[in-house]
Design a binder for these strands. Structure first.
Length: 434
RNA sequence: CGGGGAGUGGCGCAGCCCGGUAGCGCAUCUGCUUUGGGAGCAGAGGGUCGCAGGUUCGAAUCCUGUCUCCCCGACCA
């Protein structure tokens, strides 16, 4: 993508409304634009990152055996009356009438809807187990939206729902999602701490939250220091034994921790830090299958309410968490897995014909090689270009200028760490294509 | 919802107390000079000061109401 054709409104001064570093950087780097409290437009660069995060989440869901679908954002109130949550949910749910006066709502979650859909199609235990998911916009009219997209009112969420015949099946489905979550966060370059959670309004008896450790997190956590020692490789290869090990280690939110009479973790191993909740999984059993009237016929001919679970990941919130975890004084440092472009190609002298044509040619070859490249072909000073590239945090910067071309080299710089080296065009391209 | 703060060109701010018809920096546009880490000079465009009402000869400045946004707390991906 040529920067002279792109829409990248970077800002030098930090907008006054932003408090935390990820929010400031998202605004400065032209990723998002606020529309109302807790409601944001995703600008082209931010949208690319969002799609990358979404892709990784999707791949891991698919790998875990979940099946993707898409449910609507708008739901009828009657659906929620069946489960009893229409009244229970409170003002956080955005409600409004349609033109006929029918009561509608903008979905804050989809347990009722998926159960309803399932009910219409599944009658036999032979169709179990199933896990369905979608990645869809949610709206929760938060009392206090804040920190940019971290606590938005409208946000993108991956929510999955599992249906099993019995509790053992539910546990297996829950474990499969647990593993998928560990892998997902690890792939995103994040270290997530699973925390035993109280089950709250969704109900049920088994639940874990996944927190990214960050000073700007909204939750206060207490946990065993051993949780920090889990390696990324181990998480990427997570399996049932990983879950057993992790859930065996103490981790609680402050409120729950306060209720624990004597904490099993020795004082020198007990850590207290803040966390950003990026995922939450629940096994809630038959709560919705009963209230919504979903049952299947078992092998012995009896009718059984399926055991259900639901599993959420805050896809848009993850972007904030990633930036909180990966930035420096100059700007964002994207993990390659989610970077909006892999390479920032800088033409040092757009007014210099031979330099420009050399850069143009390199751009063409990067495109042919399938390397996502943002080509700064603007007629700007080098400093401004470097500052922009550092701010938007692409993993690589490839610098093409007259001085290098005289020596037959271009400069390749890594954003994280800042190492740079001079290479021939051929070897630079080979490096980037790899 | 309770407590605090703020709304003035695209962004960041000053002016408001002591009413007199809007200013600074950045950004933008033009020209010239520059060009390997956010350039310099000269010039230009862009706001009627969140909105409504009131006081006054006169309101960004005073009064009343209202809307919006941000921060702290109780809730959540």
């Amino acid at each position: 993508m040529r920067l002279t054709r792109y829409f990248l409104p970077v800002v030098r001064e930090t907008p006054a409304d932003a408090q935390i570093v990820s929010h400031k950087l998202m605004l400065r780097a032209g990723l998002i634009r606020q529309t109302a409290a807790g409601i944001y437009a995703w600008l082209p660069l931010g949208h690319r990152v969002l799609r990358n995060i979404e892709r990784i989440v999707r791949e891991e869901q698919d790998k875990a055996g979940a099946v993707e679908m898409l449910m609507p954002t708008i739901q009828p109130a009657d659906l929620w009356r069946q489960s009893g949550r229409y009244d229970a949910y409170g003002p956080e749910m955005l409600r409004f009438p349609d033109r006929k006066g029918s009561e509608m709502l903008y979905g804050p979650t989809n347990e009722e809807m998926i159960t309803q859909i399932f009910l219409g199609s599944v009658k036999s235990y032979r169709d179990l187990p199933r896990t369905l998911y979608h990645i869809q916009w949610k709206f929760r009219d938060e009392v206090r939206p804040r920190f940019g997209i971290m606590r938005g009112r409208e946000f993108l969420m991956k929510d999955a729902y599992s249906f099993d015949l019995d509790e053992a099946g539910l546990k297996a489905s829950y474990a499969a999602m647990f593993v998928a979550y560990l892998r997902t966060f690890a792939r995103l370059g994040l270290q997530a701490v699973p925390v035993r959670a109280p089950t709250g309004p969704i109900g049920g008896d088994l639940s874990h939250e996944f927190h990214i450790l960050a000073d700007t997190g909204e939750s206060a956590l207490f946990y065993d220091a051993a949780l920090e020692d889990v390696s990324r490789d181990e998480l990427l290869a997570a399996d049932a034994s990983t879950i057993a090990r992790l859930t065996g280690l103490y981790a609680m939110e402050e409120e729950e921790h306060a209720k624990v009479a004597d904490c099993p973790v020795p004082a020198d191993r007990l850590r207290s830090r803040r966390g950003i909740e990026v995922g939450h999984i629940f096994a809630f059993g038959t709560k919705y299958s009963e209230s919504m009237g979903l049952s299947v016929q078992a092998a012995d001919g009896s009718q059984v309410h399926p055991q259900m679970g639901s599993y959420g990941i805050g896809v848009s919130r993850l972007m904030g968490a990633i930036i909180e975890a990966s930035h420096d004084d100059q700007g964002i440092v994207w993990p390659a897995a989610v970077a909006p472009f892999q390479v920032g190609l800088i033409n040092m002298r757009a007014d210099d014909g031979s330099c420009a044509s050399a850069a143009d040619e390199i751009y063409g070859r990067l495109r042919e090689a399938g390397v996502a490249t943002l080509y700064d072909d603007r007629d700007e000073r080098g400093g401004a270009k470097f500052a922009t590239m550092d701010l938007i945090g692409l993993p690589w910067q490839l610098i093409v200028g007259p001085k290098g071309l005289e020596k037959g080299v271009v400069e390749l710089k890594r954003r994280a760490g800042g190492e740079r080296e001079e290479l021939s065009v051929e070897s630079a391209l080979a490096r980037l294509a790899a």
